[in-house]
Nucleic acid binder design. Structure first.
Length: 282
DNA sequence: AGCCAGGGAGTCG
DNA sequence: CGACTCCATGGC
């Protein structure tokens, strides 16, 4: 292990990161549990096996070493984001503080744009285990092999020429045609990551919503998770209800600028509550 | 069997 | 704009 780490392993102080909760709290669907407290996943054509020892995060890139692997994964896991400062600010609101305290190690990952766009198109009216399965079949069936048994997300060009029948094996249902439309628009340059990054949030959201299958919720998830817009808070029906009930309809002022981060604490907290008390009464 | 899952498009007023 | 229906699939 020591030799392996010295060889090509990366390790950083994790700053309070809770790896397992972060990877499986509904912001990414690209990681598999290896059953030994390590996790294997992909992002932007890179694969890695990751695990935690105390407050040390270990990342072992798999397959061919890519340039800037260290900087890439460090940014992916948001290790340079000052979460002590965020959570200290969030503590000003008692309910938000309770959400943070229930899972303080949640981090909002800096995920790649196109991976995130595909993933959250699949997430529409879907549940997390099945989303993960469809994403896995999409990667295995149409993405580049990165390491034994591990495939990355397909490039836009790899999907753009396909027909919906070609995606039947994904069992993605009505979402298959949305995936193809997204791939075609990105491949054609009609939806461009650099342009989206340069655009003000409201305009970037409208641009994203031009994609067939992308509405307010998916657009906001892509903005937050795939374009690192921490001020964007994606709201599904349960989040709206929770925010209505516990925060008077909008996120508290202490979440300013980090609404998306606050929202992820609230989302996970609400999910752990089983949405109890939030279901619409019939 | 029925309901639900981190929604969105199409249609109708 | 708001409300309604349909969309496919799998887990419970």
């Amino acid at each position: 292990m020591m030799a392996d780490l010295a060889n090509n392993g990366l390790a950083w102080p994790a700053g309070g990161l809770d790896l397992a909760t972060t990877l499986f709290c509904g912001q990414t669907f690209s990681w598999a549990d290896n059953g030994d407290d390590s996790y294997t996943g992909v992002a932007a054509g890179r694969a890695a096996r990751v695990w935690q020892q105390g407050d040390t995060l270990h990342v072992r890139p798999l397959g061919r070493p890519a340039p800037e692997d260290e900087a890439f994964w460090r940014h992916y896991f948001a290790l340079d984001e000052d979460y002590a400062a965020w959570t200290a600010r969030f503590a000003a609101h008692p309910v938000l503080k309770q959400c943070v305290d229930s899972s303080p190690g949640i981090r909002v990952l800096n995920q790649p744009f196109f991976d995130t766009l595909l993933s959250f198109i699949i997430s529409a009216n879907n549940n997390i285990p099945r989303i993960t399965g469809i994403v896995e079949r999409l990667r295995t069936g149409f993405g580049p092999p990165l390491a034994p048994g591990v495939h990355g997300f397909p490039a836009p060009e790899s999907l753009a020429g396909l027909a919906v029948e070609d995606l039947a094996g994904l069992r993605a249902g009505f979402r298959a045609k949305y995936l193809l439309d997204a791939a075609r628009r990105v491949a054609a340059g009609e939806v461009n990551e650099e342009e989206l990054r340069a655009l003000p949030t409201a305009q970037a959201r409208e641009k994203l919503k031009q994609v067939y299958g992308v509405g307010d919720k998916v657009a906001d998830c892509v903005l937050l998770f795939g374009l690192s817009r921490k001020e964007v808070a994606p709201m599904d029906v349960w989040m709206r209800r929770a925010v209505q009930r516990y925060f008077g309809g909008q996120l508290p002022a202490c979440a300013k600028g980090g609404e998306g981060i606050a929202q992820q604490y609230i989302f996970h907290w609400a999910r752990m509550q089983g949405h109890e008390g939030e279901k619409p009464e019939k």
